[in-house]
Design a protein around this nucleic acid. Structure first.
Length: 128
DNA sequence: ATTTTGACGCTTC
DNA sequence: AGAAGCGCCAAAA
């Protein structure tokens, strides 16, 4: 039995990603934490991978080190993400042999301690 | 049911 | 700074 409900988790992730301000970025790990499952950073990526809603600014989610995660497609996906970020004014630098895109977390990072969710972690009022 | 993968993250060479 | 190793846990094979 999984520790989290996949559907709820995905919905929560989308909800949080939608809150990221234009021109700012956050990390998979931070979203997982805000969603109440700090150990599910990889699942955040999974959720975005299966994303279909066009109103979710997925480009604002990057890796913890400020690097845009590679999709295993030779860097095409990462390049698209970098372009979308640049379009909203985010400075994205490039480096490395396998081209790696990077964003200055200190300058563009958005890491709120808590966000207002509809209900993903109720105050355990029903017994558990 | 078991093994491998993965849009991750942190610590250590 | 860059690479490698390890932990994590659900999804996919």
């Amino acid at each position: 039995m999984p520790q989290v409900d996949s559907d709820v988790f995905h919905a929560t992730v989308y909800e949080i990603v939608r809150m990221i301000p234009h021109g700012m970025v956050t990390t998979y790990g931070h979203i997982a934490r805000l969603a109440g499952s700090p150990a599910h950073s990889r699942l955040v990526g999974q959720a975005l991978k299966f994303l279909q809603a066009p109103d979710v600014p997925w480009q604002r989610v990057i890796g913890a080190g400020g690097t845009i995660s590679d999709r295993g497609d030779g860097g095409e996906g990462a390049a698209r993400q970098a372009e979308r970020l640049r379009e909203e004014g985010v400075n994205v630098s490039e480096s490395g042999a396998p081209l790696r895109f990077r964003v200055n977390i200190q300058q563009y990072g958005w890491f709120p301690n808590q966000v207002s969710l509809y209900d993903s972690e109720e105050e355990a009022e029903d017994g558990e």
